[in-house]
């Protein structure tokens, strides 16, 4: 018998603290497998955000730094300046990257920082209990939009990938999802390419991964995947927004 699937050495043995059906775990796996397959785990330095994935530093089997809310791209810039040959990635949620950290991500991209950004967008603040995020859909009910997000008072969702693709400094921007086996396999390819870009000194890459939050969406894990496919994707279409060859 040949093992065709087992947990990657790019992750530690620590059990994930994520809620049942939360897709952070899938994304963690894709990032860790990419680092191992590209043979750069020993050179990797990850930056964990504030939010549900703050404990990413306990899961990725490499050196890690924990950044203050939204500032992971600035921390990653500091790391990359000191160690230009290291492989630096940030792992950020939408509250972290699209809300409080919108300036830091924008300028890291504009500077063309040679880093890889893993942006997990689940349209809500998860860790704090399900508040409205900049990515929350119109009409989506959260604890701070109890009647659904109203554009008159709450504005509209932010499409970070589309925005960052406009900057000359960005190299590769793609939005993917993880709702089925095909999508997961494609997400892996995109994430791996984002790291390859860094290895080849191509500059700033960001993969936005649409993700679920069954707990705060108030849905079963399976219904969450369906909601992501049907509702989230119409606001956040999948695809490559920028690729400098």
């Amino acid at each position: 018998m040949k093992t065709v699937f087992e947990k990657t050495k790019g992750l530690t043995d620590k059990t994930f603290h994520y809620c049942p059906g939360c897709t952070h775990g899938i994304v963690h796996r894709l990032v860790a497998e990419s680092l191992v397959e590209l043979n750069v785990l020993d050179k990797a330095i990850g930056v964990a955000p504030v939010g549900c994935s703050v404990f990413a530093y306990e899961y990725f089997n490499c050196d890690m730094q924990q950044a203050s809310h939204g500032r992971a791209p600035a921390v990653a810039t500091g790391i990359k300046r000191v160690l230009p040959d290291s492989i630096v990635f940030t792992y950020q949620g939408d509250g972290d990257l699209a809300s409080i950290g919108s300036a830091e991500i924008m300028h890291a991209a504009a500077r063309g920082e040679n880093i890889t950004v893993i942006y997990v967008n689940n349209a809500i603040f998860g860790m704090t209990g399900g508040q409205m995020a900049p990515t929350t859909l119109i009409g989506q009910v959260t604890t701070t939009s109890p009647n659904g997000r109203d554009p008159l008072t709450d504005g509209y969702p932010i499409n970070m990938s589309e925005m960052l693709a406009q900057l000359i400094g960005s190299t590769y921007i793609e939005r993917v999802s993880i709702t089925n086996v095909k999508n997961v396999k494609h997400a892996k390819k995109a994430i791996k390419k984002a790291f390859e870009n860094q290895i080849n000194n191509k500059g700033f890459s960001m993969i936005e991964i649409l993700s679920t939050c069954p707990t705060n969406w108030g849905m079963t894990p399976l219904d969450s995947l369906k909601w992501l496919d049907e509702k989230m994707q119409s606001v956040f279409p999948l695809g490559v927004f920028k690729e400098v060859k």
Partner: peptide, 18 residues
């Protein structure tokens, strides 16, 4: 940096590398 906030966090990243 793009702001004092970013600058001090860049310091954090760089100092963390020794």
């Amino acid at each position: 940096a793009e702001s004092e906030i970013a600058a001090i966090n860049m310091v954090y990243g760089a100092a963390g590398c020794g």
